[in-house]
Amino acid sequence: MGIGSTQPLLSIRNLTVRFGTFTALDNLSFNLDSGKTTAVVGESGSGKSVTALSVMGLVTLGTRAEIDAGEILFERKDGSTIDLLQCTEREMRSIRGNEISMIFQEPLTSLNPVYTTGDQVMESIQLHQGLTRRSAKDKALEMFEMVRIPRAEKVLTDYPHQLSGGMRQRVMIAMALSCDPKLLIADEPTTALDVTIQAQMLGLMKELQDQTGASVMLITHDMGVVAEVADDIVVMRRSKVVETGNVYDIFEKPEANYTRALLASIPRLGSMTGKSEPELFDLVLEANER
């Protein structure tokens, strides 16, 4: 994290977000390096998704959330650095979907059911790149081919309900990458998918990242996924950062107890030999004691 002299792409500093009396993010700080995949891990409710939505500037839209303090510094495409929290809504809109884009956990419900997939991808392209409808369509087709959607031409005119979950997630990825963003936030992108599709999707994301050079903020609770694709890790628990570091270092010698518990939660083949049910790990025991 922040190793070396280069400036980080995204730097979250002392971010505090509250929902009424509940503190969703408590003095959160971490950096995200250019061109790398940073996994934000933690159990549900630890504040991972709130972090992502804060970066997108979507956390206060239609919710009771309030940002109390902090800054989110982001290095734009033109090389300038701005604080996303100080941006006007107008500036934020030119960044969303263009410089920072996001894909969500539920591919089944993340696409609008009444428009074709092509329309939805083209909408993003036309909005940020000012292309004509025709060239936007070409670009959308190119994106569909890039994320390896078979019969891409036909899928452009399909409605979301005609596609499988894996295909819909590919459409989401195509949409997210269509404007060549510097940062892609992926919020549990594989959780809702079948295990085999999960592996495909992770492979695809890794490959696309190499191709485009985008940084990825991967939000997940699955340490198996982390091991597979992440360069850096941010471990979160109860609205706070527990530990950050390089993926090898953390897997090798985790410093926080919590990280150790998380790592122990990765099921291994044969680990249940001779046992009738899975063991409770420290985390649960600790939680019960409280």
Partner: peptide, 16 residues
């Protein structure tokens, strides 16, 4: 509808 995921997607696209 406003609570649905696709509205979040539309906002994440940068639509006003």
């Amino acid at each position: 509808v406003l609570q649905s995921d696709y509205i979040r997607t539309a906002r994440a696209k940068g639509l006003s």
